[in-house]
Design a protein around this nucleic acid. Structure first.
Lengths: 344, 344
DNA sequence: CTGAAAGCGCTTACAG
DNA sequence: CTGAAAGCGCTTACAG
């Protein structure tokens, strides 16, 4: 069943059917409703590939987990962003195609631009990762509309949404400071991670702007953003013999790992060492003590990404960049709720 | 840049180029390498829509979150299955298209079959959900290869993978029994959920086969699989005045909610009430007490789904069904690790 | 081993 | 308001 069959049954031309499918206004109400009914009855579905071939637009949005070290569906932060992105994109009439990285991981370059052209995607969303492939910047610099999530894009048809990593850190330092903590430590992921680096430098800068000392022994990296790294990094810091009064970890998972290490060494949280994590993942509500953390509005980030991409695709809108405001979630691990808080 | 351009530059016919792209054997090595090189140099990428139009195959797999009440990317169990599915499918050379449900949620039927034909997907994976749309069974009964995850499919080109929900429950009852517990309760999601129902009936049957009493007061439903439901259901059970010695919850989130309710009422876990959850989500390791649970090999389920689908697509293999073996993960909440376990 | 040509199912100027 | 026809970029019998 194709457009020709419908035209024949309805006794009109193929052009007319096509115009009806695409909501052209110049069709008489009579013809329109007749054809519409036939399409309904026959269960006719237009072929997307034929349409794409003719128009170069596919109604498909490419989703790319960028980098050799990329996040995946199990990443607690991005998965919620993606979820909201998918919903909003769906409302706008687009479906999502996820490019697999597997075939290219081993071999050479994962040519994202080629794959975008292959599928004629209308636009792309790029999810932040580490060790970016060269083809990411090719894509960024192409004419394909792209939105980066936690990833700066600079192409002429690109935009991005970033967490305000500086503000995240300064909020934490400020909170620690108000609670009376003066010795502040940091657990990051790795030097390769822009996110971790930005958080660290924001943290350092704010500490200095408060006139507090920066002790290098209290700044460690775990290797990645996961729990085991946080555990291991914390063990190292403990082993170094010097401990800060409060620690900010670049992810909740790092923080959870760090708390495990502290607990194992009979160092109580928050009484001995206060901890704040980052991301507000689900598990952070279930730890003991409950983890204080920084939340970003993931739902909003996803929705914003969709809307920005839509504009880029349809209105040739100016490229734009959004920065989202972080929010401090106070639970138990930071010590705010202690009966006897350590205010100076 | 299209196939015609390549042909012209290489001084061969379009047919020849096409055959080279598709690895036909009948091409001379000389022509092949010349054309290959030109494709390389020009950065030519074949158009998928043109190929799809000509061949009716797209190299795309549709991913469907079935049901009016469907899971999404944030679901801790399916997201890991999906992750592994995507990896394996990528290795096999397929990309994934995710159908959005949004446009259809409000209106009438979400016509999955139509959308499969629209994109000419080569196959589909259907993720279990509740309140299935009628079009799910249309799809199942079509000629499009489908694999259900935790969802029985019966079409002639369909297969499925199921948790062994009966065994999950019987393992839990058995474990409780060996620990000496005789009064066993259950927290499910809703009557609409096949999964929850199967787990419940397996649980009831096993209890009976052990000759233990089934007390209806100890069987409650929360409404869905999430934490708040578990909390609320547990509060109701507590309010009823009668409490079992041990409870199995149909999901970890339900179990976590139930533990919160118990804690609030100063009922200790596992000393007063033992708890076992289901799914082994990440958060289950971070609760206090740590949650004992049932794990299923999500990575394996995803990989299996991909392989089965591949066979269905390529070999017209017989439809098949796999059932995966559950594993009991013993942590703290079930009481196994108590110094003084309640063995009779 | 290579190529000419029809066909896949749409859209879109253009003519009427 | 409607329709004939070219074109989108591939594949695939078929002929040579």
């Amino acid at each position: 069943m194709n457009i020709k069959d419908i035209a024949k049954i309805a006794g009109v031309s193929v052009s007319t059917v096509s115009k009806i499918i695409n909501n052209y206004s110049e069709i008489s109400e009579e013809t329109r409703s007749k054809v519409l009914q036939i399409m309904q009855e026959t269960g006719y579905v237009p072929s997307n590939s034929a349409k794409t071939l003719a128009t170069k637009t596919s109604n498909l949005i490419g989703v790319i987990f960028a980098g050799k070290l990329n996040v995946d569906f199990t990443h607690p932060f991005f998965v919620e962003v993606l979820n909201s992105f998918k919903k909003q994109m769906g409302l706008l009439g687009y479906d999502l195609v996820f490019f697999s990285n597997e075939k290219f991981q081993s071999g050479g370059n994962n040519d994202y631009l080629a794959r975008c052209r292959h599928y004629h995607v209308d636009g792309c969303v790029l999810i932040s990762g580490q060790e970016l492939e060269p083809s990411i910047s090719q894509l960024d610099n192409s004419d394909i509309p792209c939105i980066g999530v936690d990833m700066k894009l600079s192409g002429r048809s690109s935009g991005y949404i970033m967490s305000d990593n500086y503000k995240i850190s300064s909020k934490v330092v400020e909170h620690f400071y108000l609670l009376g903590y003066r010795e502040l430590g940091y657990i990051g992921s790795t030097q390769e991670s822009d996110i971790s680096n930005m958080r660290e430098s924001g943290y350092r800068n704010t500490i200095e702007s408060f006139g507090l000392p920066v002790n290098e022994k209290w700044f460690v990296n775990g290797g990645n953003f996961y729990e085991a790294s946080g555990y291991e990094a914390m063990r190292r810091m403990i082993a170094s013999g010097s401990l800060p009064r409060a620690i900010f970890a670049a992810s909740d998972q790092l923080a959870i790992g760090a708390m495990r290490a502290l607990k194992e060494c009979s160092l109580s949280v928050p009484e001995t060492v206060a901890v704040i994590g980052c991301d507000d993942i689900e598990a952070s509500r279930f730890t003991t003590p409950q983890l204080s953390t920084i939340r970003q509005n993931k739902e909003k980030i996803g929705r914003l990404a969709a809307l920005m991409l839509y504009d880029l695709i349809n209105n040739q809108s100016e490229t734009s960049a959004f920065v989202v405001e972080p929010e401090l979630i106070i639970r138990e691990s930071c010590g705010s709720k202690l009966k006897d808080p350590p205010y100076y």
